[in-house]
């Protein structure tokens, strides 16, 4: 043990002995601080799922979406007919009536035990129509968003990664299409293509890809600058591989959130087109089309004709939005981390 005498000299100071002590420290019996002690990392997806699960409203939304999908799938039997054979994929029928069969009850009857949602002007069972109608809305939403992603992701990724004239070209096209409101553009496309299920899907997909392309391009531009991408490029990995193996997976999170929310938007747009008489045929049991006569029925006091299909749309879109919001919070808990890291 050395005695410390305070020095009386003043001037430049230097510590001696500390460094040597560090080098010589015999660390037995003393728990050495370990930097990695708290570094067990849960898998990223597992983490996202854990955060999502703890979000009550998001789980409710997921439950509602799952429930609605179940109901529409089992609403009527699913059959495919090819070469004279009819394959029944799904034999169950939750809907009590054929949705397009007329006069299963009196016309414009209010809700009753036999027809819980009442009947429409042609005496069709509204309950069956709402259940079966979900098939149109839900499938249009899913397919149109999937197609839009198929177009938007590659275009956005390529524009963002390649830059230069490719980027310029794609983005000017995107800017131009952005000048047209979603529904107006869809209306115009339907006007050109004509009506029908696939035309409707095409119109909604053609207007939908723009958003993904723009979003993904922005994300790619940001991710591109990060070191692991530079490293991959420097190692001579081909561009295509860099884009789709390294850049896109890291930029995809906001796109997933956007796509989820867009399923809701697309369902709303399809319904709006149906309501305007520009979507599916007005006699189809599509939720929007069922409302196309809503105004007339309203004036005559047939409220049930309006209320139930609308509620179905609302329920589905609301649930999808809750899921999208929950995904957003789960994938990017930044607001939370920002607060947590401050001290």
């Amino acid at each position: 043990m050395t005695e410390h005498q305070p020095t009386t000299e003043r001037g430049r100071i230097r510590i001696e002995g500390f460094e040597e002590a560090v080098d010589e420290t015999d660390r037995d019996g003393v728990d050495v601080w370990d930097d990695d002690r708290r570094s067990e990392r849960r898998g990223r997806l597992e983490d996202v799922w854990r955060r999502f699960r703890s979000n009550r409203s998001a789980m409710v939304g997921l439950g509602v979406v799952a429930g609605l999908v179940f109901l529409t799938v089992f609403a009527r039997p699913l059959e495919f007919s090819t070469m004279g054979y009819t394959i029944t994929v799904q034999p169950f029928s939750l809907a009590p009536h054929d949705p397009s069969e007329m006069y299963v009850g009196p016309a414009n009857a209010g809700p009753s035990l036999a027809h819980p949602f009442g009947t429409d002007w042609a005496g069709r069972d509204q309950f069956s129509r709402v259940l079966a109608g979900g098939r149109f809305s839900l499938s249009i939403g899913a397919i149109a968003v999937a197609l839009a992603l198929l177009v938007g992701i590659p275009l956005g990724a390529i524009a963002g990664y390649a830059g230069g004239w490719v980027d310029e070209l794609v983005m000017r096209l995107v800017d131009t299409l952005y000048a047209f409101p979603f529904l107006v553009l869809a209306i115009a496309i339907v006007a050109v293509l004509g009506q029908g299920y696939w035309n409707l899907v095409a119109a909604l997909a053609l207007t939908g890809w723009i958003g993904y392309a723009r979003l993904l391009r922005g994300e790619v531009l940001a991710v591109k600058e990060r070191e692991y991408v530079t490293a991959a490029t420097a190692l001579g990995v081909p561009d295509r591989t860099v884009v789709f193996r390294h850049v896109v997976p890291n930029a995809i999170a906001p796109v997933i959130v956007q796509a989820t929310l867009n399923v809701g938007t697309v369902v709303l747009s399809a319904a709006a087109l149906g309501f305007l008489g520009l979507g599916l045929d007005p006699s189809t049991a599509e939720w929007g089309a069922m409302l196309s006569r809503g105004r007339d029925s309203l004036v005559h006091g047939h409220w049930h004709v309006t209320v139930f299909p609308g509620l179905a749309i609302f329920l589905f879109v609301m649930a999808i939005n809750l899921v999208g919001d929950g995904l957003n919070d789960a994938l990017d808990p930044q607001g939370e981390t920002v607060e947590r890291r401050r001290r």
């Binding site: 409203s57 809701g264 709303l268 319904a271 709006a272 309501f275 929007g288 409302l291 809503g294 105004r295 309203l298 409220w303 309006t306 209320v307 299909p309 609308g310 749309i313 609302f314 879109v317 609301m318 999808i320 939005n321 809750l322 919001d325």
Partner: peptide, 20 residues
């Protein structure tokens, strides 16, 4: 929740219900 509901409500339906 109110904002989510506002976004999820089909506007034509909201109009019809308000009219009703």
């Amino acid at each position: 929740i109110a904002a989510l509901a506002g976004i999820a409500t089909p506007n034509f339906w909201l109009g019809l219900v308000l009219l009703l």
